[in-house]
């Protein structure tokens, strides 16, 4: 009986075939995206980890993470093959004067490490996110809590949304024109901070407004009914509950700020700088110095120097460290957000 026909058997119709075809189309599209993502990650992780990690203790290439970039000298001398960084090479030549005139290949930025770039990127992220969060949250509070809805406020919101679609190179040029030239800040941390902050402001404002909207009206009314001023109600009974949501959106902002190259090309980034950011004469100079930054360094080492096995190390190494750094900052923000979220639940 079980092999025979019954009334619930599927008729072979076009609808059923289309159903299966679409299912596979969706499934393959998802797998394709996944494959591309994994491909990119795997390449960077596999090739980059060769630079960042090593087989003998301490298993981490400390030099790569703690030193400034140097030129790499590759040469054969007295029957042996040498690969030396700038300083090492100079010491070597001092010890073996005959090595001075050996035929050698020199490759810029391919030895040493990327410490100044890591520091520069961290400084850029912290500074610009602080500015963006302060301005963004303040604007969101004004728009959501104080401003009366009207054509003007709707226009402001629309303008902010449109700002999110402006290409980052345009922000870079804007920052260059306003901060670097007009304000005379030159290529500096400060100019980079503000340029990057303006780039992520639309995201921060929009997300902060959404987070504020999600806080139940009852909390505001409850506060006000107890004799709170508007700002007291917002600061004690609205903003703390909106913070986790605001931080969630800023995590995306962090990744963008850390990763964008175009906005800092003209405003904050140096190809190479010998001094570290804290090596300044006066404390005030700190804000007016340019810095090296990871994304810009990656751009430089992958497009401005020859491509070969020696330069590949620093290229993939930088990209790998960059991914790690962004992941680290994002994880910190996520932990902070979770901490806040557990504190205020409703």
């Amino acid at each position: 009986m079980s092999a025979g026909k019954h009334i619930f058997q599927s008729p072979a119709s076009g609808f059923r075939r289309a159903e299966r075809a679409w299912l596979w189309a969706f499934r393959l599209a998802t797998y394709l995206v996944l494959a591309c993502g994994l491909g990119v990650f795997a390449t960077i992780v596999v090739k980059g980890s060769r630079t960042v990690f090593q087989t003998e203790a301490p298993f981490l290439n400390v030099r790569f993470l703690t030193q400034a970039p140097e030129s790499l000298y590759v040469f054969d001398f007295e029957g042996r093959h040498y690969e030396q960084g700038d300083r090492e090479h100079r010491a070597f030549v001092a010890a073996h004067p005959a090595a001075e005139n050996v035929k050698k290949e020199s490759l810029v930025y391919s030895a040493g490490g990327i410490f100044p770039c890591i520091v520069g990127t961290l400084l850029l992220v912290v500074g610009s996110m602080s500015i963006a969060l302060f301005l963004g949250v303040a604007a969101a509070i004004y728009l959501n809590e104080y401003a009366r809805d009207g054509w003007f406020i709707r226009f402001v919101r629309l303008a902010i949304l449109n700002l999110a679609g402006v290409p980052s190179i345009v922000f870079g040029l804007f920052g260059f024109g306003l901060f670097v030239i007009f304000f005379g800040w030159n290529v500096s941390l400060l100019a980079g901070w503000f340029t990057l902050a303006f780039m992520v402001l639309p995201v921060v404002i929009t997300a902060s407004e959404e987070s504020l909207k999600a806080v139940p009206k009852g909390f505001r009314e409850g506060s006000l009914a107890l004799g709170a001023t508007k700002w007291q109600a917002i600061s004690t009974n609205v903003l703390p509950y909106a913070l986790p949501g605001i931080l969630t959106s800023s995590i995306l902002g962090v990744a963008r700020v850390a990763g964008e190259t175009a906005p800092i090309m003209f405003t904050a980034a140096y190809v190479v700088r010998d001094k570290l950011p804290w090596e300044v004469a006066r404390a005030g100079d700190f804000f007016f110095q340019g810095v090296m930054a990871l994304p810009y360094h990656i751009y430089v080492v992958s497009s401005k120097i020859p491509q070969n096995d020696y330069t590949e190390r620093v290229q993939y190494g930088s990209a790998f460290v960059f991914l790690l750094l962004v992941a680290l900052i994002a994880t910190t923000s996520i932990l902070l957000r979770n901490h806040l979220r557990n504190r205020y639940k409703w």
Binding site: P216, E221, A225, Y344
Partner: peptide, 18 residues
């Protein structure tokens, strides 16, 4: 603000703060 300190209110939907 002074008015609301003297005129307390209890809402339809109980709204204890988190």
């Amino acid at each position: 603000i002074e008015l609301r300190k003297r005129i307390g209110m209890v809402f339809q939907k109980s709204n204890p703060f988190p």
